[in-house]
Design a protein around this nucleic acid. Structure first.
Lengths: 236, 236
DNA sequence: ACGGCAACAACTGTATACTGATTTGCGGAG
DNA sequence: CTCCGCAAATCAGTATACAGTTGTTGCCGT
């Protein structure tokens, strides 16, 4: 509060620190769909001027994490088409990247994968959606770090993040949890046995399943809320 | 010079106009590898303040068109690894996008493709590398516009742009020109006959050839310049 | 009560000013 | 002649100030 220093981050520039801070908060679901992110407000909270905050928000907007309006920045509302588009790109990229990772993963990376998988197993046992969500993120991050094609890796990270925002919702359903865990296990086996082709194939089905679950659950959610909205006419 | 108006662009914000302006200039090869883009200087030329220019430069940097240094922004020097990485991503994305386009291209799009192809044929006849370059860009832009997956299309455009900067150099070689033209013809046939699978396959080979030509010619260029650099030790 | 209009407020966008870091270039010592 | 170090310029980063635009609120007329 009365912190003299403007920010506690450790990175290089304020812009970079603020960018990561806001992006992480978006990941954690700290913002609702109706929240407006206003640079001057965030700047006040952080004790800095508008400029670094504004630049961070602009970057997030260009990367698709936010949408800019004439009145603040907001979370994008992903239409089913948007989600389908994102998954199409992921289907193109991630299998090949996984094949890379199967060849280049080192012992440390394998260890992190194992930990993430263990957490995922525990999460499914205790039906802890939040933990499974985190484990899933760490699992992907772990093998993605081993991909030696930086551009491929960062593109994947970006597109995965976009749908990750809504992913948490699908992981609360028990059958989905089992499917995700099974997919992670198969991927893990492919990675540890350095089987590029298996990694490619299992990643393909993993993403297919992720999309299927999303579509199914979203459709269910939509029809449910449609009834409640029936009397209000057009949705916003 | 004594223009009252700060800028002649037509887009929304100054930032967006300047962004496009600089990006186009990068495409046209207006900047050399040793040129430094300095915000205050560009701002002076355009009659605006640093801020919109700075934001445009930052965006270009985040998108990989530039690299930021402590002393101005510069063009990235693509290593062979960089180029290989970019082409790997393109190999993943463009065939599928081409398959899309084969189904969604309308008459107007077909017309633009035909024009671009005609220019390319003329360019090869007259050995006009610049014209072939332009035709190639327009050809891709035309079918890319028909891809209904915006994220896929913009990702492709971005990665294609990155290597396009060095592409011009490869198109001066006659055999490469013939290969490119042949690839465009096959793609055009696939598009006009709405054959998604053929579009997919021909795009795959088209990109493979593009990468091959690049690697070959770059290697030739490198060994040539290596001899001249022999006495200087490490390259910069 | 409801619809339109006007004044207001809340933002983004742009401009200007300042600061700190880093490179560059010059000068002196070895 | 070379190498070290210091001074000065340059430029990114950040802060503050101003302008322009749009959504919002409240009032007035119907």
């Amino acid at each position: 509060m009365s912190d003299e220093r403007p920010f506690r981050g450790s990175g290089g520039s304020l812009r970079a620190q603020i960018y990561e801070d806001i992006r992480d908060r978006i990941h954690r679901g700290a913002f609702g769909a109706s929240d407006r992110l206003v640079d001057v407000e965030i700047a006040g909270n952080l004790g800095v001027s508008r400029m670094p905050v504004r630049e961070a928000l602009l970057q997030l907007t260009h990367e698709g994490y936010l949408v800019g309006t004439t009145r603040g920045f907001m979370l994008p509302t992903l239409t089913p088409t948007d989600v389908a588009n994102i998954f199409e790109v992921r289907r193109c990229l991630e299998p090949r990247a996984a094949a890379h990772a199967a060849r280049t993963l080192d012992a440390a990376g394998m260890e992190r994968l194992a930990e993430a998988l263990k957490d995922a197993e525990e999460a499914v046992e205790t039906a802890d959606a939040e933990l499974l969500f985190q484990a899933n993120v760490r699992f992907r991050r772990s093998w993605l770090e081993a991909v030696d094609n930086d551009r491929l890796a960062s593109a994947i990270a970006r597109f995965a993040d976009h749908v990750q925002v809504v992913r948490l919702g699908t992981l609360t359903h028990q059958p989905t949890q089992a499917i995700v865990l099974a997919g992670m296990r198969k991927l893990y086996d492919a990675f540890t046995s350095r089987d590029s082709m298996a990694a490619f194939d299992h990643m393909t089905t993993f993403i297919q399943h992720a999309e299927e679950r999303f579509v199914t659950l979203t459709r269910a959610l939509e029809t449910a809320s449609d009834e409640g909205r029936r009397s209000q006419g057009q949705s916003q």
